[in-house]
Design a protein around this nucleic acid. Sequence first.
DNA 1: GAGAGTGTTGTAAC
DNA 2: GGTTACAACACTCT
Length: 282
Amino acid sequence: MPELPEVETIVRRLQAVLPGKLIQDVTVYKEKSFQGEVEQVIGQTVSQVTRGGKTIRIHLGSDRNILTHLKMTGQLIYVDKTRRLGGGHPTADWVTQLPSAHTRVSYTFSDGSQLFFNDMRIFGWMRVLTDEGVEREWSSLGPDITDPALSVEHLQAVFARRSSSLKLVILDGTVMSGLGNIYACDALNVAQLSPFRSAQSLLSEEIDRLLRASRQVINKGIELGGTTFDGRYVDSDGMAGSYQDRVQVYGREGKSCYQCGGLIVKTKLGGRGTYYCSQCQA
DNA sequence: GAGAGTGTTGTAAC
DNA sequence: GGTTACAACACTCT
């Protein structure tokens, strides 16, 4: 499900097609998925689409925004009025069948195009917020992993007061935002650091290695359009990503490590599946 | 058919 | 304040 590269892929695509579109109608299929009043967004025009961490912000005029988080299973699918996919890809059957059983909210624009918010597990949400509301929502977010301003010094200061395991700390969105479980596992492998090490035990040279590795796997993920397991993540054109073909360790239990040839093992850390090399990440 | 596992994150108890 | 377990929910896999 969506981690930062997936969200970034969706945002780039939506930013290319949504600005200038007038929201003519909104259908809420699941109350829990839409927080606000549809009257607050009907008649508004999309000005731009951005993101903060893994939340997507659809800017409307007059101090209104639709903020959305896809959580585990959310999808945002855009279809034009002819129901062709935005990118001109061959139309998948299920796109012509929208809304589907998992569609929670749909938007219809004045030119006949539509945006569907699908979310099987209903963990995700859409909220209508003012600019100030969005800032408040984002105030606890740590610096984005793709933000050049995120420095080794910053991480060093944060890590110094964290005794818990390295992997849990880098997954903490208040430390830095963007890394999810798959990319966290992969980043630690590329950096050849143990997920179990206490964060405060890291030397600055190791933090530097970790930050570089994190950016490397995230950028690779963005380049490949995200990660799709079980067809559960698709971008706004309904297309799967391909990072799953390039993962370093995630889901590769029993296989050999690309860094050193060691055996990749799986365990559980903080309730999350954790894959690492038993040799170079020991 | 029962039970465990799934890519997120907010909350609450310690 | 930091750490940890768990809940929110639906579906697939063992």
